[in-house]
Design a protein around this nucleic acid. Structure first.
Length: 344
DNA sequence: AAACGCCGCAACCGCCGAGGT
DNA sequence: AACCTCGGCGGTTGCGGCGTT
């Protein structure tokens, strides 16, 4: 059976609301309350569909609506909640006083979604897009100026998901961050191995990172992937300098990374998230996975920062990008045998 | 100054579930 | 049980503002 229209649409006004219409609607609701939306337009003298009135009221005219730019705290809460609830905008809005589901949905689609994509996060799964993650760029951006050592160019896109490259990345990051061994700034491709050997780093044979470019990757796809992950890589590369930054990852036996991440549940707006069974489950599944062990960030780093306390009250997109990436938590379970995991 | 394209957001559309008859 | 109404929700659209050429 077809659904009856909510109202007779003939002759009803559509489009933007005029101040007069707003005034009429506000006055009526203040006197009579929202009540029956179907009969409200007629009673309020509006040539509008009841549904249109309800939307106008709930999304715009309600007195408790907070307008203006979303704060970092609100943005963090939205991302947290979206990672748990998905596109349940009304449920998310229920935890953000003064914000409507429509507003949150718009903000997600126009700002947060793009920002997550820019830093390499899949906005649907909230997982780092490791399919696009060229770890070699981590090396180049962390160790050297990219113009000096562009590992991407040296290695090609086989770096993607290449466990040996991941080992190399781990090794070099460890070396850089723990041993403080000066890293040669003018490193040549064939000098990398020697450098590692000389510094008693677990040896890697040159042919382990000089494999020919894997078939199936075009130069175009290489460029596309590099472009897409560039922002994220630069963020990831900073993880070694920040204990707060960690990432969670679900890794299956086939090294099909199904990473995910969770957030610091320090946001006062959603303090009860940690009590949410779903959130706890999410957290628990990641808590044993520490990126620190992968990049060997010194454990003696300062106390992790409260993510909320790291807010810089700036409205630039870069700041918000940075904050987004700060939300990532990379964690590797201690029980995970990294070496065995690497050997494919 | 005009044309064009992009972006953000208010509003609309269609579907769904709850509840009443 | 079937039908109907209503409120709510998520996805999409379209307009206006703004920046760029």
């Amino acid at each position: 059976m077809g659904r009856a229209p909510c109202c007779d649409k003939a002759g009803l006004k559509k489009g933007p609301w005029t101040p007069e219409e707003d005034h009429n609607l506000i006055n009526y609701i203040q006197l009579h309350g929202p009540g029956n939306w179907r009969t409200l337009p007629k009673n309020a003298g509006l040539q509008r569909c009841g549904k249109s009135c309800r939307l106008r009221w709930t999304n715009y005219l309600r007195p408790d609506i907070k307008r203006g730019r979303f704060s970092f705290e609100e943005e963090e809460t939205i991302i947290q909640l979206h990672s748990i609830l998905g596109n349940k905008w009304s449920a998310i809005a229920a935890r953000l006083p003064g914000r409507t589901d429509n507003e949150i949905k718009n903000y997600w689609n126009t700002h947060i979604r793009k920002r997550l994509l820019r830093i390499g996060i899949d906005p649907v799964t909230h997982a780092p897009r490791l399919d696009l993650l060229d770890l070699s760029s981590i090396l180049s951006s962390t160790l050297c100026n990219q113009s000096i050592l562009n590992m991407s160019n040296l290695l090609g896109t086989q770096a993607l998901m290449n466990p040996e490259l991941l080992r190399l990345a781990t090794t070099i990051l460890s070396l850089k961050q723990e041993s403080q061994v000066p890293f040669p700034q003018n490193l040549q491709e064939n000098q990398l191995c020697n450098f590692l050997l000389q510094n008693q780093v677990q040896p890697l044979q040159p042919n382990q990172y000089q494999a020919p470019i894997q078939e199936g990757f075009s130069s175009e796809s290489n460029q596309l992937m590099q472009a897409n992950v560039e922002g994220f890589l630069s963020e990831v590369a900073t993880f070694g300098n920040s204990q707060e930054n960690s990432i969670a990852s679900n890794l299956n036996e086939d090294f099909v990374c199904q990473p995910n991440y969770t957030y610091c549940s320090s946001n006062p707006i959603a303090p009860d998230l940690a009590e949410n069974p779903n959130f706890q489950s999410l957290n628990n599944s990641y808590q044993n996975f520490s990126f620190d062990s992968a990049v060997s960030t010194p454990k003696s780093s300062p106390t992790p920062l409260n993510s909320s306390s790291t807010f810089i009250n700036s409205s630039t997109e870069d700041d918000r990008d940075s904050h987004c990436s700060n939300l990532l938590k990379f964690e590797i379970p201690e029980s995970l045998d990294i070496d065995a995991f690497m050997l494919i």
